[in-house]
Structure formats: C-alpha cells, structure tokens
Amino acid sequence: MSHPPASGTRVPWHDVHPEVRAAVEEFLGGRVVEASTQSGGFSPAAAVRLRTEGGRRAFVKAVGPEPNPDTPGIYRSELKIAAALPESVPAPRLLTGFELAGWVVLVFEDVEGGHPELPWRRDELERVLEAVGSMSAALTPTPIDAPTVGEVFGAKFDGWRKLTQEDTGGLDPWALRHLDELVELESDWVAAVAGDSLVHADLRADNILLTDDRVYIVDWPWACVGAPWFDLVAMLPSVGMQGGPPPHELLDDPDPAVTTVVAAVAGYLVRQGRQPDPPGIPTVRQFQRAQGVVALDWLRRRTGWS
C-alpha cells in the first residue's frame, strides 16, 4: 500500500552555521567525525545523529531563520517542553539547548532505535498503542505547565467554517452536502477536548522510535493539556493512511465529545491539504490530504449521516 512520505528537506550537518557546529562540538567534548541525517519529519532543519572522535553520541536538531520563518518558533517551544518533561515520559533526554547566530539548537541523547515499519505491522502498532495508553495515564494530571489544546490549535481547527468562505471545488461530495452541519459540529471542539492530561498532540510513525524493549515518543513542540484520548484521535488517521487498521477499529468510544473532535481534526486535515505548500516544506500538504481522506471516512461513520 503506497502512502505519502513523512519527510521534508533536511539541512545537512555541514550546512549548519559554523558557530553552531563549533558550540555543539564544545558541548560534546570532541570533534564530530560522523553525522547521519535523519529523514523523518517535515521541518526544513538539521536532524542529525552525531558521533565525536571520542565516541560520544548525540542527536541534534538545529534550525535557522531560512527557509521557513515559523520553524524557529516551533523549536523554541520544543526546547521549553523538552526541558520540563519528567524522566517518566518515554522521550529521549534533552542534554542541552541554546540559541546562537539566529539558530535554535536542541541536543538530545542518541537512541539506537528505528521508526515503526510501514505499512504498519500489527505487533508494532500494538506496542505503540500500549505505550501511548501508559503515557496518557502517567501524564494525567499533567506534570508540567503547558497551554491547552484549544490554545495551541485555536482557529486551525475551524477548518469547516473556513471552507464555507473559500472555493469548495473538488471538496468531497459528502462533506460539501453536510458542510453547514459540520461547521456546527466542530464549533464545540474546544469544550469537547478539555481535560487535564498532557498530550503530545502530533503522534505519527515518524515521531516514534522503537528499540528492542522500549517505545520512545519524540518531537514535543505541540505538547498541550486536554482530554487523554486526544493523542489517539489525532494519530489514527495517519495510522490508517499508512497501512494500519482504520480508526474506527482502534477507537470505538461512542462519546459525542470524541465525534466533535474527530470533526475538528478532519476539517483541519481536509482544509490544510488544499492549501499551498509552506516555504521549505514541500511534502506536508500531500501527507495531510491523505490523512484527511481517512479522517473524513471516520467522521462519516461516527455521524451516521448519509
């Protein structure tokens, strides 16, 4: 089964600002002799596994002001969250982070693991779902201060409402037929997703690392506080799109609040998939469009609307 890649245009280590590279080497205590770029993820930044001449290893994320002006702010958010996460969270440990020469830099422990195999294998998916459930329980109530899901996503989850003021050519016929009802359904999403759990809010296969005995969740810039099931709702469209079971087979909670948030997520994905490519991130819209197809089918099932 084919699916769009969760990858963007990465900056190689040798193109990172020389002052940043020097500062990382100083922190690691030796000259970098091996730099392996990691392709997963969409941000137009460096994501590199490093090894120094003394054998020390680290994973470094670094981004400058070009080509996407929004990415440094995202990395600042990740730096703040990563520094605050308790050790109980299954995330790589942040070793240091700093800003230098217009770049935002995060240095993590290096994890010897790999992303889940795609199309999804059922055994790996079950490991991940179990880990997500355990993480949700451990992060309820939230152990750190973080914004709410409503504050982080705000108007982004008003996708159906925005579509009523835009060209709807090519929109799925079912969605077009029920557009006014979808606007009404999504309008309550902030109240529906309220809760006291710390959620990752961007779970996908490329933000998960598997070792022989652990599941690591990486890339936490969007972490926020909300309902404990939000991570599953946000993640399952990508699972279905990447060859896993459809969302309704993995989450059958009949709570109307879940349906409301599924509507908001579907509206976000469908509308975002219709937007132009953001600067320096040429693959994300295709990925969102493919998720939107799965999310819309899930929403159709949950509403029962013909």
Rank of each mutant, 00 (worst) to 15 (best):
11 V>W: 01
12 P>D: 08
16 V>E: 06
16 V>W: 11
19 E>M: 06
21 R>K: 14
22 A>L: 06
25 E>C: 02
26 E>W: 01
28 L>H: 11
30 G>K: 02
32 V>C: 12
34 E>H: 11
35 A>V: 10
43 S>Q: 09
44 P>F: 14
51 R>L: 12
53 E>C: 06
55 G>P: 09
59 F>Q: 03
60 V>K: 06
63 V>K: 01
64 G>E: 06
68 N>M: 07
76 R>Q: 15
76 R>I: 10
77 S>Q: 15
78 E>P: 07
82 A>K: 03
83 A>R: 13
84 A>I: 01
86 P>A: 07
89 V>E: 09
92 P>T: 11
96 T>E: 15
98 F>S: 12
104 V>Y: 06
104 V>D: 03
107 V>N: 03
111 V>C: 10
111 V>E: 02
115 H>D: 07
117 E>R: 13
119 P>L: 13
119 P>K: 05
120 W>Y: 15
122 R>L: 11
125 L>R: 06
125 L>Q: 09
130 E>S: 12
130 E>G: 09
132 V>M: 08
132 V>R: 03
135 M>S: 13
138 A>D: 15
139 L>K: 01
140 T>L: 07
148 T>Q: 04
152 V>E: 04
152 V>N: 00
153 F>T: 05
154 G>T: 02
156 K>A: 10
159 G>V: 03
162 K>A: 15
164 T>V: 11
165 Q>M: 07
165 Q>P: 05
170 G>T: 00
171 L>Q: 07
172 D>K: 06
176 L>Y: 02
180 D>T: 04
181 E>A: 14
182 L>Q: 04
188 D>F: 05
188 D>L: 02
188 D>A: 15
191 A>M: 00
191 A>I: 02
197 S>M: 01
211 T>E: 01
217 I>M: 14
219 D>G: 06
219 D>F: 04
220 W>H: 04
222 W>K: 05
222 W>I: 00
224 C>M: 04
225 V>M: 08
226 G>C: 06
227 A>Y: 00
228 P>M: 09
238 S>A: 14
238 S>C: 02
242 Q>M: 13
248 H>M: 05
249 E>R: 14
249 E>D: 14
251 L>I: 10
254 P>W: 10
257 A>Q: 14
258 V>N: 02
260 T>A: 12
261 V>R: 01
262 V>Y: 03
264 A>I: 10
265 V>H: 05
267 G>Q: 08
270 V>N: 07
273 G>K: 10
273 G>W: 01
274 R>I: 12
275 Q>V: 03
275 Q>L: 14
276 P>G: 05
277 D>H: 11
278 P>E: 05
283 T>F: 00
285 R>M: 12
285 R>T: 10
291 Q>F: 00
295 A>Y: 03
296 L>R: 01
296 L>D: 08
298 W>T: 08
304 G>N: 08
304 G>Y: 14
